[in-house]
Design a protein around this nucleic acid. Structure first.
Lengths: 204, 204
DNA sequence: CTACATAGAAACCGATCGGTCTTTATCTTG
DNA sequence: CAAGATAAAGACCGATCGGTTTCTATGTAG
């Protein structure tokens, strides 16, 4: 009957179990939403028992926060891949990247948690710094990308967050009312608009 | 001890109770969110018993849908008030109106339900037509407002929905990460951008 | 190998969920 | 008024929730 008598250190067991729990939490929020992501659901998906769960996380909230941090970290990692060569990107590439990340399955975790945070003070308090540092990271990268082109930094920040918000709203609405043609047209227009805007400002 | 022996017709009792239930549902979603809006919560807020609730609504979902429809109807009514005189509005007024409606407390019901719908097929199916007709109403009004200025209808629709999505995303993020100065600057820039865009297109 | 600490399993708990059922109050109809 | 229909109350139900507790398995240190 064997079983798996693979010998692992305590540290290995610990991090592996934590990893399985966080991954299961992300997947569960993706697939069944924030509120149906119960501890039972997470345990079933991860194959970890409640006892195991509570050894590493003091509450459901702790696990949710860990999942949110992991999602933010993945966004960050995607940025690293994007500008690995250090060559500045065009506005079209940036918008395409932002849109793809926002529409990425992992990002629905962000939407779910963000909306839940509105009415859950504990969650909101702990999510706020994560949200803030995620935006700081994004904006800093955008500013760095356009460095030396004479674009006002504030405007770069405003433009990039505005585009993100637009894709956020579009994505959320598209779950219940998808309009692929309109969404494609929006992407096209956004590229044209922001490109023209960039040229105008750089020309000044 | 009296009580309230006010005589009402069955129709009056019916519509009054339904109204109280829908209103309580909207308030509850606003204040405690979609998922904590339980039947117990709704009954407590409305002063109606579970028996009374289930006389008029076959399930929690039915009541949620009724609340969503009411929220959409209120958006519609706000439009009626806005253009009561029939005079076309400027882009600044339109954006201000859109932003105010999206940030209005009642609209959080829409966000909550929209996000919940992603993972609840029953809700999504029934919310889809409501969402669609709400957008059709909004876009039709926008198109009507700019009639005769030579603006392509598709572009008007695209612009208005894009602005809405941008304010949607901004609003949702602002619950956990409010940035009043950035949000004000965004509004200002949006007005300038869309106004310039409108002039360019009308001039063609 | 022993003693101890950490990791993990699983039964268990009170509270709350959406929904049902039985009973009572109120209104309508003749 | 009486008889029937509709409205509303609230006790009740099984399922599930987050969390606790008890107990076992596994790794670590001497």
């Amino acid at each position: 009957m064997s079983a798996t008598p693979v010998r692992r250190t305590q540290e290995q067991r610990r991090t592996e179990t934590i990893g399985k729990l966080v991954e299961a939490t992300i997947e569960s929020i993706e697939q069944v939403g924030y509120h149906r992501t119960s501890l039972g659901e997470i345990c079933a998906r991860s194959g970890v028992s409640k006892g195991g769960l509570f050894r590493h996380f003091g509450s459901r909230l702790d696990l949710i926060i860990a999942a949110a941090e992991e999602v933010a970290a993945r966004h960050s990692a995607a940025f690293d891949d994007l500008r690995a060569d250090g060559v500045p990107l065009g506005i079209d590439d940036i918008l395409a990247f932002a849109r793809a990340r926002i529409r990425h399955e992992t990002n629905v975790v962000w939407f779910e948690v963000l909306v839940a945070a509105r009415t859950e003070p504990d969650l909101r308090e702990r999510l706020a710094p994560i949200t803030q540092s995620l935006y700081e990271m994004i904006e800093a990268r955008a500013v760095a990308n356009f460095e030396g082109l004479g674009l006002p930094e504030d405007l770069v920040r405003l433009a990039v967050t505005s585009a993100i918000h637009m894709f956020d709203g579009e994505t959320i609405v598209s779950y219940s009312y998808p309009r692929p043609e309109v969404e494609a047209a929006r992407m096209k227009s956004a590229v044209e608009l922001f490109t023209a805007l960039g040229k105008d400002l750089a020309a000044e």
